[in-house]
Design a protein around this nucleic acid. Sequence first.
DNA 1: GCATAACTGGAGACTATGTCTCCGCTTTTG
DNA 2: CAAAAGCGGAGACATAGTCTCCAGTTATGC
Lengths: 213, 213
Amino acid sequence: MTSEKPLRADAERNRKRILDAAAELFAAKGLSVGLDEIAHHAGVGVGTAYRRFPDKRQLIEALFGERLDRVVELAERGLASGDAWEGLTDFLEQATELQIENRGLREIIIGSDHGTTLAARARVRLAPLTEQLVRRAQASGALRDDVVATDLPLLQFMVSSAAELTPPHAPELWRRYLALAIDGLRTPDPRPLPQPGLSLDELDVVVRKARTA
Amino acid sequence: MTSEKPLRADAERNRKRILDAAAELFAAKGLSVGLDEIAHHAGVGVGTAYRRFPDKRQLIEALFGERLDRVVELAERGLASGDAWEGLTDFLEQATELQIENRGLREIIIGSDHGTTLAARARVRLAPLTEQLVRRAQASGALRDDVVATDLPLLQFMVSSAAELTPPHAPELWRRYLALAIDGLRTPDPRPLPQPGLSLDELDVVVRKARTA
DNA sequence: GCATAACTGGAGACTATGTCTCCGCTTTTG
DNA sequence: CAAAAGCGGAGACATAGTCTCCAGTTATGC
């Protein structure tokens, strides 16, 4: 569909440079970096950047599709794990790690208008997998019964929020709080949770509106 | 020290209106609301607002001192509780609730340049109390031993982050996640946490830099 | 080589948002 | 009722991101 005329050699080279710079800056600073900054970091003029990516969304979608696939893949790998509980916690830990390494990814996963459809599609693929992860861990007896699948992304969000203000000399501090939360999930004789978990639709609303405010 | 000439009656009346409007808007929208917006909401001109509060910080400090006192007071009440565990969890829950009800308060407690000294002073008063709360709960056997006092504000921060994107029809959802975290604190035979907790000084750095970035 | 189509760079226009000043007019006060 | 105090809000200023324009440069096909 996208009728692509072949670019001139130098133009193609610049396109790649812009994509590289954008990947780096989005990961480090989030999606709010301007195309101007990206262009400068890529060593090209602003005009060049805007000519190639007239819409920032195109740039974002070009970059983050693969990253989101990896999250889905992590869930699949968790389901393939021999141990149901480990499958769940490994997924939680690794998916959280991805979001923390890449601030742009985190901002895509939680709302922030940009790349919305991309994230929405990933969520659709992810939902049945996490549902399955939770059910399996509950069946194995390791996971408390009153947890639901939509709790997972919210836990990830909480932990990655804390990670965002982590001091440079303790970049792994978030693992402490994820571990604490995971211990909360494992509680053997929990008192029932005071509020019901969200439905998938409700989660969608939550996740869409984040940061935008 | 602040040599206060008595204001004219109408001026004093407007001062109060501005304070009321600011309290309302800061609670609802956070500290980023402009003086212009506050002035308009108070039904006075922008000039009036700036004449009375040439520095936004003065306005903020005038408003949030009392709120911060209440947090300290909550810790004291927790310490006074007969049950060490309940004292701790009640404090956690109620202090978190205060932050969630009042977005401005939350932004003051975590860095964001404004009102820094105010929050720093509150932290100094709060530190020995939370230290005590934790120690007491550990002595009673209810709280796992590898938790430290600086974990409390970080847990609160995580939960209130989640609360910030809570959907309007489930405003109490955060209680679910606080309960989960609290169950993590109670874990009877925890596997040791993967990262050491922060010292008070480290917490200070963390808490100061938030949101500013 | 050379003509030309493709591409480049970055100044600056434009928008949006918040901070803060100035000053002609109004209200309070003694 | 005159003077002092206060008022309102237009608009100057600063910052920051988005995006356009076009004179000048470079790749490419003949």
